[in-house]
Amino acid sequence: MGYAGLQLVNTMFMQELCERMTRQFDCDQVMHQKDDLSFLRVDRDRLESALMYLKTHEGFVHLSFVTVIDYIEDGFFRLNYMLYNYDKATNIGVQVDITRENPSMHSIHHLWAQGWTYQRELKEMYGIDFPGSPRVDEEFVLEGWDGIPPMLREFDTAKFCEDRFAKRDGRESQDIKQTMRDNLYPERGES
């Protein structure tokens, strides 16, 4: 079967799968991004069983990564668990919204042997807790960090650098409009 043929089968498979998931796990949002990638939204407490189901019954044996998107303005984190089905060559992103206040989520370390690593990273970088996840409190890439988790949207990298590092001397840039005004029409165009 050529790739085009495969795509068609995949699309149907994905559509049916998403329907099954919606029925079974009340996924309230389904988004088909492309032939071989869809996103599903599930409830915080249904995530584990949804992942378990996808892994054991639907062939999504591979966990590509776990990540989070910070929607600071709306006060929530969106966790994203990206799974892959090798036979159908399709990805599914299972997403869960959790509140930004004291964020915490069920651990999936027992479903995938590398799951704890992602959770450890998310704890460090976003402050999301995964109770029961091995070594979740150990430092991951940071060492002796005492600021807020640095991947949070409110962590201002520019300000961090300004506070931390000296500015290099002799680095001044002139504003184009202001320079031209000063040199060419000093008294005109004010309000």
Binding site: M31, Q33, K34, S64, F65, T67, I69, M82, G93
Partner: peptide
């Protein structure tokens, strides 16, 4: 606004970008 995951085979296997 949107989100996607794209991937390729690097020397070490599946290499991907999830972009929102």
């Amino acid at each position: 606004a949107g989100q996607t995951y794209v991937k390729s085979e690097c020397t070490r296997g599946e290499y991907g970008y999830f972009l929102v």
